[in-house]
């Protein structure tokens, strides 16, 4: 009996812990759409203090401030692009997890493709050479 109670208590504790952990700070969204936009933007914006976390993940005080700002801008009716521009104007391209395609990010976006191409050409040449060796 006692064991059963402990088991229940443990389950409740685990579940409540999960709920608490997944809630950032409760924000009074006016609609579900607002909440979805908030979450997706918070996930694509980097927290500049703790650089490998997004605004959605981070507990840093700056991330809390930026989330408040993000919330206020959504309430203000600003578009997603306006909000991204707001962040980039202050913290630079680095603040976006997905940097824009521009001349200075060309290597970043094109680099993997170029490497793949080099690999394909190299393996094609090796294969061709071996085939020639086998034939002769």
């Amino acid at each position: 009996m006692k064991l059963r109670f402990l088991c229940w208590a443990w389950c409740v504790w685990i579940l409540s812990g999960h709920v608490l952990a997944s809630a950032i700070e409760p924000l009074p969204f006016r609609s579900e759409l607002e909440e979805i936009r908030f979450k997706s933007l918070a996930e694509e914006i980097r927290c500049t203090v703790c650089q490998n976390q997004s605004l959605a993940d981070s507990d840093a005080p700056l991330a809390q401030d930026l989330r408040q700002e993000l919330f206020a801008m959504i309430q203000d009716g600003r578009s997603d692009q306006e909000i991204r521009n707001f962040m980039v104007e202050r913290y630079g391209d680095f603040v976006l997890y997905k940097p824009p395609l521009a001349s200075h990010t060309l290597l970043l976006w094109g680099g993997p493709g170029v490497l793949l191409l080099i690999g394909l050409v190299a393996s094609w040449r090796v294969v061709r050479q071996r085939r020639r060796l086998l034939q002769s």
Partner: peptide, 11 residues
């Protein structure tokens, strides 16, 4: 911390 965001302060 509202004004600091305008300055791009992050630490």
């Amino acid at each position: 911390g509202r004004a600091a965001i305008d300055l791009g302060v992050y630490g």
